[in-house]
Computed example of a mutant assay.
Amino acid sequence: KLNSYLAQMEDRKCEIVKLQECEKALYANFQASLGENNEFAHFLTKVLKKKVKCMEKKEVGREADEEDENEEENDEEPNLGTDEENSGSEDEVFDDSVCPKNCNEALFQNTIQLRQKRLDIEKALTEEKKAAANLRKKYNALAKKAKVVETSLDTADRELKTFQWEKQQRLNELYVVVPLKLHQVEYLVNGEMPSDFSQALVFTNQSLEYLQKRIVDLHNEKRMQREIYKKAQEQHKQLLQDKKEMEIKIRQLEEKCNHLMMKKFGRLVDFEAVQAHSVNIRMEELEVQIMEKEYVHSQELKEWEERILDLQQQLMKLTKENTSKLQQLNQFCHEKQQLETKLASL
């Protein structure tokens, strides 16, 4: 159920993102319809962003419709006052029901339609957000319950393990009668069989054989580990000696390099810094060659893709022709069978 809630929440998130994209696209469409230097841009923007309460109209008759229209006008008046307060002190009354003079009627009607779409998108967005919030609450509540159940299950599991351990301990304390023969008893004290066997240990012949074999295996493993350790010590000594020789050789090469630099340049030069700041001509040439090869290969790949597409189309055509011929052959066979049946009946 948690996974179901998660899937529903992801779907709601996707829907919210889609609605937000639609809202952005709507505003972009509005800005594109305004164009540049439109003198009614401020008025049309206010018309687009105006908040209008959606009223559900009941079709009871013309009188009821007129009453609903009057109620809508009364509801819009406070919004108009709010818009006028937000826009600053203006002398003219903001009225979005009438297109102002010298304003494009089509642009005005388009703005009204975009406003209606914006209101629908905002309503749908609000509903999706509410649904997502409800799903989040249900998911959190269910997750808390699942956590409590998991904690209870862990506690019950621990109690069960403790009970099993205590039960095993109690079972181990029980005395068990083991019938033995004299030749099976190897517990002797001073060459005699004691009267108290409380310190004796009873186990099978297989366990005894396994322990004896294990002793031999451990001796062999110990001998092998000693040999490996000796070889590792010898290798370590050899590596240390090689390291000292390499350090001496490196010092000699550094001294020789410094002497050659002083002889040629008169001072020590950091070739790594020089190489980092210099341009590697060979590398540049190789990069150019790589770019040329990539272009040639891309062209060849494009040609092969076109050729493959043509061959696929030819294959589809031949397949269709083959299918039609198979259908004709099937029809001919059917007709032949019918004719043979008629001839047999004659």
Rank of each mutant, 00 (worst) to 15 (best):
K1R: 09
M9W: 00
C14P: 00
L19A: 04
A25D: 11
F40S: 06
H42E: 13
L44W: 04
L48N: 05
K57C: 03
E59I: 13
D65W: 06
D65K: 14
E69R: 14
N74T: 12
N74A: 15
D75W: 13
N79S: 11
G81I: 11
D96P: 10
S97C: 05
V98E: 10
N102K: 14
N104T: 03
L107K: 08
F108G: 04
K117S: 10
K117F: 02
L119D: 02
K129Y: 01
A143R: 11
K144Y: 06
K145D: 12
D154A: 11
T155C: 01
A156L: 09
Y175R: 07
V177I: 04
P179R: 05
E186G: 02
E186V: 11
L188Y: 14
G191T: 07
M193C: 09
F197K: 09
N205K: 13
Q206K: 15
L208R: 15
R214P: 00
R214T: 05
D217N: 12
H219Q: 15
K222H: 06
R223C: 03
K230A: 06
K237V: 07
L239D: 03
L240D: 08
K243P: 00
K243H: 11
M246V: 03
Q252G: 03
A276C: 01
I281V: 09
E285Y: 01
Q313W: 00
Q314H: 06
K317C: 07
L329Q: 10
L329I: 13
H334R: 14
E335N: 15
K342Q: 14
S345G: 05
L346I: 12
